[in-house]
């Protein structure tokens, strides 16, 4: 019989404990009163106060958020186009190369991507800074967006587009009023994914940014090399908090949209 055995429960509990325990410990120790990260000396929020007074870190956070918002938005547009191209056109010149360029960045070691983009910017004489960082982030996050949206488009019922066109809607109107609303949850979660990937990236950012455009992970990394401090724990906790909130909102939105869609479908069925 297909039932959940003790072995199954144990594997899940152990697996998830392994995944979550380090993060939970990191969050707990960000509230530690002691400067030692491994000895508990009572609850304190002093490290958060110190963090917000650290101007270099705050500047880095601001750069990170700006790059994240801008690159995620452009990457979502490009990724949506790429996903449409991949699912709607079975044949075009260079399709194999195109799909290669979509999938390869997902697994490409970041040192290679980072180095090659830096060399491009140097070769064309583009000063490194905010814009090169943004371009690099768009390039590697758009592929993740494309894959997320592609999987939604794969199960898309084309007949509703045909219906809209048959009823006289222009292709543009059909795209914005029929196609986009249906894939909107995937587009949204693609955006959130792109934003968090951009927020987190260290290696590609280190290669492609220049003076004056230091991101939070770069700042955290340079401090981590000097040792573990509760202040970094606090910075990490805030980052985790932002990302977790984003993910929860994304999943709530997509769930609500799905419920709404099911309700609409039922209503349409009942009316028909």
């Amino acid at each position: 019989m297909n039932r959940w055995s003790r072995f199954n429960i144990a594997s899940i509990v152990i697996g998830f404990a392994f995944l979550y325990l380090p993060i939970v410990l990191l969050v707990i120790f960000s509230f530690n009163a002691s400067k030692l990260v491994t000895v508990w000396a009572g609850f304190s929020t002093q490290w958060y106060g110190q963090l917000f007074r650290n101007e270099a870190l705050m500047d880095a956070a601001w750069v990170t958020v700006r790059v994240g918002l801008l690159s995620a938005t452009i990457a979502t547009v490009l990724g949506t186009l790429a996903a449409l191209a991949m699912t709607r056109y079975q044949r075009f010149h260079g399709r194999v190369l195109f799909s290669g360029m979509i999938y390869a960045p997902l697994v490409m070691p970041e040192v290679i991507t980072g180095l090659s983009m830096l060399l491009l910017f140097v070769a064309i004489g583009f000063d490194r800074g905010f814009w090169t960082l943004t371009i690099a982030h768009i390039t590697f996050t758009m592929c993740f967006v494309a894959v997320v949206i592609q999987s939604r488009l794969a199960s898309f019922d084309r007949s509703i587009e045909e219906a809209a066109l048959d009823l006289g809607a222009t292709p543009t109107a059909t795209f914005f009023q029929v196609t986009l609303p249906v894939i909107a949850p995937a587009v949204f979660s693609g955006w959130v994914l792109a934003f968090t990937l951009s927020l987190d990236d260290l290696v590609i950012s280190s290669f492609t940014s220049g003076p004056g455009a230091t991101t939070l992970p770069m700042k955290i990394y340079s401090q981590v090399r000097l040792g573990v401090t509760p202040e970094i724990n606090a910075a990490c906790t805030i980052l985790i908090g932002i990302v977790a909130t984003g993910v929860v909102i994304a999943s709530l939105v997509s769930r609500r949209q799905q419920i709404q869609r099911e309700r609409d479908e039922r209503a349409a069925f009942a009316a028909g």
Partner: peptide, 17 residues
């Protein structure tokens, strides 16, 4: 969910452990 939290942070968390 852990995939969405920073790679750097998750590696860093292990140093203290």
């Amino acid at each position: 969910l852990p995939f969405w939290t920073s790679f750097l942070i998750r590696v860093y968390a292990w140093i203290a452990i």
